Simulated scan of single mutants.
Amino acid sequence: MRLLRGIVTKLAGIVLAILVIATINFTLVHSAPGDPASVMAGQSGATDEKFLEELRAEYGLDKPFMVQLGTYLKKVVTLDLGYSYRQRRPVNELILDRLGPTLLLTLSAFFLSLIGGVVFGTLAGLRHGKWSDLAISLVALLLYATPVFWLGLMLVLIFSIQLEWLPAFGYVDMRASSFGRLEYAWDVLRHLFLPAITLGAIYMAVYTRLMRASLIEVAAEDHVKTARAKGLGEGAILRGHMLRNAALPVVTFAGLQVGALVGGAVVVETVFSWPGLGRLTFDAVTARDYPVLLGIFLVMSVLVIVVNILTDLLQRLIDPRIAVR
């Protein structure tokens, strides 16, 4: 019963958080300057006031703010994200079409940055004060200081234009419809490599420096000195006494950075013409397509919540003492 109450309480908190996020998103989006009806009227070539009034009435834009908010929250509860003004399609369909590529890019960048940060941070921490430590720290600092869009353009210039190793833009080749499964998967992987590196590089730099500092701190603790005094090998000490304790702050910080990672996908998808939610967000902003923007913001918020839950589980796996507290 205690476990069941805990699960119910957690789920209730998640639902409440989603509704609060939806309310804040709706308020902020509708507070922005610009009128969707004017944009739609301009695209259709008609700008008279009567046509604008008809458009506002058709999409409920003429109703009071609180009425619009209540209608939107009712739809959110029923998993209805509305209808796109511009693309004339349900928002659910638009997001489902783009969600797969965004998840692939974001999760690839997340695990690449986390694993790379732990590996390089461990190497730097174990070689503290030596040339390899200085080299890794310098590269991490340079990556952290490099703008994401500039790094993406440089990678395209080097690996796509100069070396011609990898494709510069898109999700798959134009001939992908004739590919077999393995050939299709390999083509997607080739297109994914540069965007994932671009998106994950800055976070890999952060996790590298954090892992290095954490490992140096753990190495000075008494239990590590005791294990070394008992004659344990350095490999056993690293695996059994240092890595788990040192990796815990990195995993915690990575969970907190998921929101920024998802936000960074907007820039990366635009640079690489990646057909995900980032490109859809950019198009929706320029067209003032409020339902699409609200749907994307809500889905991204839910993704952040889910990843944070997974991060909590990973923390308990790394350090079982957390589950006891």
Rank of each mutant, 00 (worst) to 15 (best):
T281F: 14
M204I: 08
Y83E: 03
L69Y: 04
L294S: 03
L55Q: 12
E49H: 06
Y83N: 08
L142P: 04
M174D: 09
L182Q: 06
H30W: 01
E217I: 00
V304L: 07
V304R: 03
T198V: 07
V224P: 13
A229S: 14
F51P: 02
L199W: 05
L189I: 05
N92S: 05
L105P: 11
D80H: 13
F193M: 01
A46L: 08
Q162T: 14
W131H: 08
Y59K: 05
W131F: 10
L11C: 11
T9P: 04
T311P: 03
L143T: 01
R89K: 14
D312R: 01
L103A: 14
S44Q: 12
V139K: 03
S301Q: 13
D80W: 10
V8D: 07
H191M: 02
G180M: 10
K75Y: 03
I14L: 14
K10E: 01
A227M: 06
P90F: 15
P101A: 05
T78W: 13
T9M: 08
A12Y: 07
L277W: 05
I18Q: 13
G82W: 04
P249Q: 00
N308F: 09
T270R: 12
A41V: 09
S273W: 09
I7M: 12
L99H: 06
V118K: 12
L105C: 13
L16Y: 03
L256T: 13
V268I: 14
L194M: 02
L310S: 05
G295H: 14
S301F: 13
T146N: 00
A246C: 02
Y85I: 10
R325H: 09
M204Y: 08
T311H: 00
V299Q: 11
Y144D: 02
A220P: 09
V285F: 08
L104R: 12
S178D: 13
E49K: 07
E49P: 00
V304A: 06
V29C: 00
L73K: 06
R212I: 00
E269I: 13
L3S: 01
Y171A: 11
L107G: 09
G276W: 15
I18T: 15
D312K: 00
F26M: 05
L55W: 10
S177K: 15
A201W: 02
I18K: 10
F110D: 03
V258W: 05
L126G: 10
F120E: 06
T122G: 06
A37K: 07
V148R: 15
T47C: 10
I322H: 10
L157M: 09
I18P: 10
H191E: 02
Q43G: 08
D173I: 01
S178Q: 15
V156F: 08
V77D: 03
D319L: 00
L3E: 00
W165C: 05
Y290Q: 03
Y290P: 00
I115C: 14
E217T: 00
I318W: 05
R212C: 01
T208M: 08
L256G: 15
L157K: 05
T78R: 15
Y85L: 12
M174L: 08
D62Y: 11
M40A: 11
L19M: 11
S132V: 05
F110I: 01
R239W: 04
L232W: 04
H30M: 01
L61M: 04
